[in-house]
Design a binder for these strands. Structure first.
Length: 307
DNA sequence: CCTTAATCCTGGAAGC
DNA sequence: TGCTTCCAGGATTAAG
């Protein structure tokens, strides 16, 4: 989600106020319709954006909405998706349009008549694009099924939603509980909050769940400021990489020393996803008295120094 | 209630 | 060099 929020900001600067002049759908099956993916009407509907002016952008969780005068384009990048917008005359534009796995190219014209192109590329095609008439429709159809956005969820709401019997990591990753937390940020937040990923939510004290809420917010905000995490594919609207991967404290660091205590970080699978945690900083607390109000070792969360 | 595995895809890295 | 195998930021579905 930090990647999407950063993308939204960089993209908005480049396309809001511009008019869509041309829509080139190269691979219709990235377009989702009520009747599945792809098809002639999917392409036709997307081409219906011709002549529309981009008014603003929005986001909920990992979904990006591009609002226009002729409908809303919703984007989910999945694992390998990118959306880039560059001036038509810029040297990078030819390579961008000619790259492999480019599924849609839009040509836009700004108020001064300058032409730019917006390119959607997604090698693995786990992501998708779809259209709704209005933002209200998007909220009703898609966003109502998502939990509150992870960047703005209130502490009490977070506590209530995560106080269930499932593992805490499974719930962080469940978009219907809280929207926007992916595998990287789940592990990073759990490490900051000193919580073992497999702990059942119901057995975590209110204080520590509150700590997780604070840690998650801090991690996500720092990641947005850093332009997201680029593992391999992610680039923002200008083609820049996110720099937050250099600040990951546990993600992809199994077998390396914990940056807090030096203990070798443990790799495992939790909720079907690769997971890294520190056995010392994030001990498995015995579920003995499941009252959920047992004492807490050390309530400390390293605070990010930037900003 | 909660969990796992399979599924949708491509491509990069590691192993032989 | 070339082949095979495994793994990856996500999300849904079926099955246990």
């Amino acid at each position: 989600m930090p990647e999407i929020e950063h993308l939204r900001r960089t993209l908005a600067k480049r396309i809001v106020g511009s008019t869509i002049d041309c829509v080139d759908v190269r691979r219709a099956d990235v377009i989702r319709t009520p009747r599945g993916r792809g098809g002639r009407q999917a392409t036709a509907a997307m081409c219906g954006l011709r002549g529309a002016r981009v008014t603003t952008t929005d986001r909920h969780g990992k979904q990006l909405a591009i609002l226009t005068t002729r409908g809303v384009l919703v984007v989910h990048l999945g694992m390998s998706g990118r959306l880039q917008a560059v001036g038509e005359q810029e040297p990078t534009s030819a390579a961008l349009v000619g790259a492999s796995h480019v599924h849609m190219v839009m040509t836009l014209i700004d108020a001064e008549g300058r032409r730019s192109i917006m390119v959607h590329r997604d090698p693995r095609r786990f992501g998708g694009l779809w259209l709704r008439d209005t933002l209200e429709d998007v909220r009703r159809a898609e966003w109502s099924r998502l939990g509150p956005d992870a960047l703005t969820i209130r502490r009490e709401c977070f506590l209530a939603r995560l106080s269930r019997g499932r593992s805490i990591k499974a719930m962080l990753l469940d978009q219907s509980i809280v929207a926007g937390v992916g595998n990287i940020y789940a592990d990073e937040a759990l490490h900051r909050a000193r919580l073992h990923p497999a702990t059942r939510g119901v057995s975590v004290s209110r204080d520590r769940l509150g700590l997780l809420h604070t840690a998650l917010g801090a991690v996500l905000r720092a990641a947005v400021r850093a332009g997201g995490s680029t593992i391999r594919d992610f680039q923002d609207a200008a083609g820049r990489f996110g720099t937050y991967a250099g600040r990951h404290r546990v993600y992809a660091r199994a077998g390396l020393p914990c940056l807090d205590c030096g203990t070798v970080l443990a790799g495992s699978t939790v909720a079907g996803r690769t997971t890294v945690h520190c056995p010392m900083c994030q001990p498995r607390r015995s579920a003995a008295g499941s009252s959920g109000t047992r004492s807490i070792d050390r309530l400390s969360t390293p605070v990010d120094s930037t900003g």
